[in-house]
Design a protein around this nucleic acid. Structure first.
Length: 821
DNA sequence: ATAGGGTTAG
C-alpha cells in the first residue's frame, strides 16, 4: 500500500471528526499515488469531500482523486461541492478542469456561477465573464453581491461598457450599491469610464466608506485632472479619521506631481514618512515620479538612491524622469546601472529611452533600440511601437514610421495621432488628412491632440475648404472646444486668409481668458499686416490682467516687424523683462533684429547683434542677412553669410540668399561659385510653387509651368493682363530676376512666376467677383507684389497671397499692408 | 466558502 493511499484512507476515516485530522500529505510522491479505483469509500457525506478538498487544495492529483470519489459517491450534484471544485481547480491554474465541472452542472446555482466567474478572473480570462453574467440573467439564476462585484471587475478591465452598465443597473435594483465592496467596485468602474459625477453619486449614497472606496474616488479626480478637488477629498478622508493606505498616498503624490503643486507635494512627502511608509517601494516610486513631474530630478534621484529595494517600475520611473526633463545622458547612465545590476529591463524602460531619441532627433540610437526591440520580440507592444512611430517621425524618417505603423496589429488613438502628427510635421499634410479619414472608418474616436494636429494640417495646406470641413466635423461630433483647439482654429482661419473668421472665434471665446488664445490672434493679425490690431489684443490682455508669456512677445514683435512698427516693437522689447518678468531669449532678439533689418535700419540691427548677451544664433544672423538682401547691402550681407557658413550651418536658404545678394550686385562669378558649393554639398534650392484651391481640389504651379491642361489659356490671359497693367502704368522691376540674362528675357521670366500662373488659373476657373486665394511656399517677390496690385484693380477681384512669411491682401489696386516689405 | 483600490511608459 502506497503512502498516499494510506494517507487518503486515514483521512477518510478521520473525516468523521474533521477538525483533528492533520495529514502529512507532503510526504506523498504523486507518481506512486494509487488510482481512485482502489479507494472503496462509499456513502460519504458531501461535507467530508468538502473538507478533503480544503485540505488537499494545493495538489492537483489529490484534488482529481477526490473529484473522482465525489462522482462515485453520487454527490457531484451538490452545488457547494461543484463550487468548491471549480474554486480549487481554478486556484491551481487548471481552468479547463474547472470549466468541465461547471459544464456538468445542468443548472448551476449562484454559488457555482460565482466560483466560475472568480475562476475566470483569477486566470485572466475576463472576456468569458460578460457572457456568463448574461446567461445568469436569461436563465433566471439569482444574482448576489459577489456576482455583481466579480462581474463588474471583469468589465472594468475589459472596457466592456454595455455589460458593465447592465450589472450596475441590476445591482442598484437589488440595493447592492449600498454594500461596501459592491459600491466600491461600482465607483471604480464609473471612474475608469470617466463618469466621475455618477461615481460621486454612488459614493455619496454609500452608508459606510473605507480606505479602498476613498482611493477609488480620489483616483477618479486625479485621472480627470481635477487635482485640487482630489486633494480636498483626501483632506476630507483623513478628517474623518481614516488612515491613508499606500494607494491613497500614491494618488495624492500623483496629483501633486501633475498639478505642479510643489509645496503640497513636499508636505505629502513628510506625511508619507510620518505614516511609516518610508520603506514602501510602491509609495517611494510614486515619490520619484512626483519629483520628476515637478522638474526636480535632484530630489527624485535622492529618493531613488535612498530606496533599499527597487522594483523595475522604480527604475523606469527614474529613467523616464530624466528623459522628461531633457537629461538624456543621465537616462542612459541609469539604464547602464540597471543592466549592470543584473535585473532585466522591460518595454517600459525602452519606451522612455525611445522617447529620449525622439526629443533629441537621435536617429542612430533610435535605430539601435528598435533593433533591440525586434530581437526581444517586443514589437507587438502597443505603447512601445507607438513610441517608435513617434521617434521615426520626429527624426524625419517618415518612411520608417509608416512601415512600423503599417505593421502594427493593435492601434489606439495615440498611435493614430502619432502617425498623423508625424505626417503633418514632415510636410505630408494631405496624407495626414487621408489618414484621419481612415481612422474614422476604423471607428477610432479622436482626442484633442488629434484634432489640433488635424487643424494644423489644414492651416499648413492653407486649405479653407478642408479647414472648415474639419471644424464642422468637430461641431457635429460634439467635441469639446478648449482653448488649445480654439487657438489652432484661429491660427487656421488666419492662415487661410479668413482673418475675420479668426476674429469672430477669438471674440466669442475671449471669456476663456487664455494666453494662448490671445497669442494666436496676435500672430494672425501680424501675418495679415495688421500690426495695430495685434497691439490692440495685447492691450486687452493687459486690461484683463492676463500674464503675457514668451510666445506672446514673439508674436507681438513679429507683428510689429511685418507692419513696420519699429518704435512700438522696441518699446515692447524693453518692457518684457521690466514689466512682465519675461526674460528675452534668442528668438526675441531674432525678432528685434528682423524688425530693424526689415525696416532698413541695418546699422542698428548690426549693433543689436553685437550687444546681445549671448552668442547670436543662426536665426538672428539669418534675419540680418535677409535684411541685407532686401535693402541691397552687399558688403554686410557677404560678411554675415560668411559668418553663418563658418558656423557649419548647413541650410540651403543661406546659400540661396548669398547667391541672390551676389546676383543683385551683378557678381555672376560669385553666383556661380556659390551654386557650385551648393552642388558639392548636395544641397538643392527648394523650388518655388504656388497653390490654389478650386472646387475642393488643390492645384500646384511651378515657375514657367506648362504641365496644366489649360496652360495655353493661362499664358494667353497673362499676356493680355500684361498689356493692360502696362497701360495702367506698371513698370517691371527686374531686379528680382537673379539670372544673368538680358532684359526682355528677365521680363519673360517674371511673367512665368508661379503665383501669376496660379492667379491666372484662378481668374479662369472661378466665378466673377469671388475671392482668389493663393498659397506660396517661398516669399513673393517685389514685382509679383506690385503686379498683383494692378491686376486686382483691372479684374476687380480681391486677391490674397499667403507666402512663407505673411499675407498680401490686394483690393482694388491697393495692398492692405501698406506695401511694407 | 468566495471579495473591492495601485506606482512607470506613447
Amino acid at each position: 500500500m502506497s503512502l498516499s493511499y494510506f494517507i487518503l484512507r486515514h483521512t477518510f476515516e478521520k473525516a468523521r471528526i474533521p477538525c483533528n485530522c492533520r495529514p502529512i500529505y507532503n510526504a506523498a510522491p504523486s507518481s506512486t499515488f494509487v488510482s481512485v479505483h482502489h479507494a472503496p469509500f462509499f456513502n460519504q457525506a458531501p461535507s467530508v469531500f468538502s473538507s478533503l478538498l480544503h485540505q488537499f487544495s494545493n495538489t492537483l492529483i489529490h484534488v482529481k482523486s477526490i473529484h473522482a470519489q465525489i462522482i462515485k459517491n453520487w454527490v457531484s450534484t451538490e452545488s457547494f461541492l461543484a463550487a468548491k471544485l471549480i474554486r480549487v481547480y481554478s486556484d491551481l491554474g487548471f481552468l479547463g478542469h474547472a470549466r468541465n465541472v461547471f459544464d456538468q452542472c445542468s443548472l448551476p446555482e449562484t454559488a457555482v456561477c460565482n466560483a466560475m466567474i472568480a475562476g475566470f478572473l483569477r486566470n485572466q480570462q475576463h472576456m468569458e465573464v460578460p457572457r456568463l453574467f448574461r446567461m445568469m440573467g436569461s436563465c433566471d439564476i439569482e444574482i448576489n453581491s459577489y456576482t455583481c462585484m466579480f462581474a463588474l471587475k471583469a468589465c472594468t478591465d475589459l472596457l466592456d461598457d454595455e455589460v458593465g452598465m447592465e450589472i450596475i443597473r441590476a445591482a442598484v435594483r437589488r440595493g447592492f450599491h449600498l454594500h461596501l465592496y459592491v459600491g466600491s467596485s461600482m465607483v471604480n468602474f464609473l471612474v475608469k469610464r470617466g463618469y466621475l459625477a455618477d461615481a460621486q453619486k454612488v459614493f455619496d449614497a454609500m452608508p459606510e466608506k473605507d480606505v479602498v472606496c476613498w482611493n477609488s474616488i480620489i483616483g477618479g479626480y486625479v485621472q480627470k485632472g481635477l487635482f485640487w478637488e482630489s486633494i480636498q477629498m483626501f483632506l476630507e478622508m483623513i478628517g474623518g479619521g481614516l488612515r491613508p493606505s499606500p494607494v491613497t498616498m500614491a494618488n495624492l503624490l500623483k496629483a501633486c506631481g501633475q498639478s505642479g503643486l510643489k509645496k503640497v507635494g513636499m508636505c505629502a512627502h513628510s506625511y508619507v514618512l510620518a505614516l511609516g511608509m518610508g520603506n514602501d517601494v510602491f509609495v517611494l516610486t510614486s515619490l520619484v515620479d512626483m519629483y520628476s513631474n515637478l522638474g526636480d530630478t535632484g530630489s527624485a534621484a535622492l529618493v531613488f538612491d535612498s530606496m533599499c529595494s527597487r522594483s523595475l517600475i522604480s527604475w523606469n520611473a527614474m529613467i523616464s524622469g530624466y528623459v522628461q526633463n531633457g537629461m538624456i545622458p543621465e537616462s542612459y547612465a541609469l539604464f547602464r546601472r540597471l543592466v549592470q545590476s543584473g535585473s532585466g529591463f522591460d518595454s517600459g524602460t525602452l519606451v522612455s529611452l525611445i522617447r529620449g531619441c525622439s526629443q533629441t532627433s537621435d536617429l542612430e540610437n533610435g535605430r539601435i533600440l528598435h533593433s533591440c526591440i525586434i530581437r526581444k520580440e517586443l514589437e507587438s507592444h502597443l505603447v512601445l511601437s507607438t513610441a517608435i512611430v513617434d521617434m521615426y517621425s520626429k527624426c524625419g524618417a517618415i518612411k520608417q514610421a509608416t512601415i512600423v505603423f503599417g505593421r502594427m496589429g493593435k492601434k489606439n488613438v495615440i498611435t493614430w495621432t502619432a502617425m498623423l502628427v508625424g505626417l503633418s510635421q514632415n510636410g505630408y499634410a494631405e496624407d495626414a488628412l487621408k489618414l484621419f479619414c481612415q481612422m474614422q472608418e476604423e471607428k477610432v474616436a479622436a482626442n484633442s491632440v488629434t484634432l489640433v494636429s488635424l487643424v494644423h494640417c489644414c492651416a499648413h495646406l492653407g486649405s479653407l475648404t478642408k479647414g472648415r470641413t474639419v471644424h464642422a466635423h468637430f461641431i457635429r461630433h460634439g467635441y469639446a472646444f478648449d482653448a488649445v483647439i480654439t487657438s489652432a482654429l484661429i491660427d487656421m482661419y488666419a492662415k487661410c486668409g479668413k482673418i475675420h473668421s479668426a476674429e469672430k472665434l477669438f471674440n466669442n471665446e475671449f471669456h476663456l481668458k487664455d494666453v494662448i488664445l490671445c497669442n494666436s490672434m496676435i500672430m494672425g493679425y501680424g501675418m495679415h499686416g495688421h500690426g495695430r490690431y495685434a497691439l490692440g489684443v495685447y492691450s486687452r490682455m493687459i486690461e484683463e490682467r492676463l500674464k503675457p508669456n514668451q510666445t506672446t512677445f514673439v508674436s507681438l514683435l513679429t507683428a510689429c516687424s511685418h507692419s513696420g512698427l519699429v518704435e512700438e516693437g522696441k518699446a515692447l522689447f524693453h518692457s518684457m523683462e521690466r514689466d512682465h518678468d519675461v526674460r528675452p531669449q534668442h528668438k526675441h532678439y531674432a525678432c528685434l533684429v528682423d524688425l530693424h533689418s526689415r525696416a532698413g535700419r541695418l546699422e542698428e540691427a548690426d549693433e543689436l547683434v553685437k550687444q546681445m548677451p549671448f552668442q547670436p544664433s543662426t536665426d538672428v544672423l539669418e534675419a540680418l542677412l535677409s535684411g541685407c538682401r532686401t535693402h541691397k547691402n552687399t558688403n554686410m550681407g557677404i560678411q554675415i553669410a560668411d559668418r553663418l557658413i563658418s558656423l557649419d550651418y548647413l541650410n540651403s536658404g543661406i546659400y540661396v540668399m548669398l547667391s541672390n545678394i551676389y546676383a543683385e550686385a551683378r557678381k555672376w562669378e560669385s553666383v556661380n561659385y556659390i551654386r557650385g558649393l551648393m552642388r558639392m554639398q548636395g544641397m538643392k534650392k527648394i523650388p518655388g510653387y504656388s497653390l490654389i484651391e478650386v472646387g475642393n481640389k488643390v492645384y500646384t504651379f511651378f515657375a514657367s509651368d506648362d504641365s496644366h491642361p489649360s496652360w495655353a489659356d493661362i499664358y494667353q490671359l497673362l499676356e493680355n493682363l500684361r498689356l493692360e497693367v502696362e497701360a495702367e502704368g506698371y513698370i517691371p522691376d527686374t531686379s528680382c530676376v537673379l539670372r544673368d540674362v538680358n532684359e526682355p528675357m528677365k521680363v519673360k521670366l517674371l511673367w512665368g512666376h508661379s503665383e501669376r500662373l496660379a492667379i491666372a488659373f484662378g481668374l479662369l476657373s472661378t466665378p466673377c467677383g469671388s475671392l482668389i486665394k493663393i498659397t506660396k511656399n517661398l516669399r513673393v517677390c517685389v514685382d509679383c507684389h506690385n503686379v498683383t496690385k494692378y491686376i486686382s484693380k483691372i479684374v476687380q477681384r480681391e486677391i490674397i497671397v499667403r507666402d512663407a512669411n505673411r499675407f498680401h491682401h490686394f483690393v482694388n489696386g491697393k495692398c492692405s499692408c501698406n506695401d511694407f516689405w
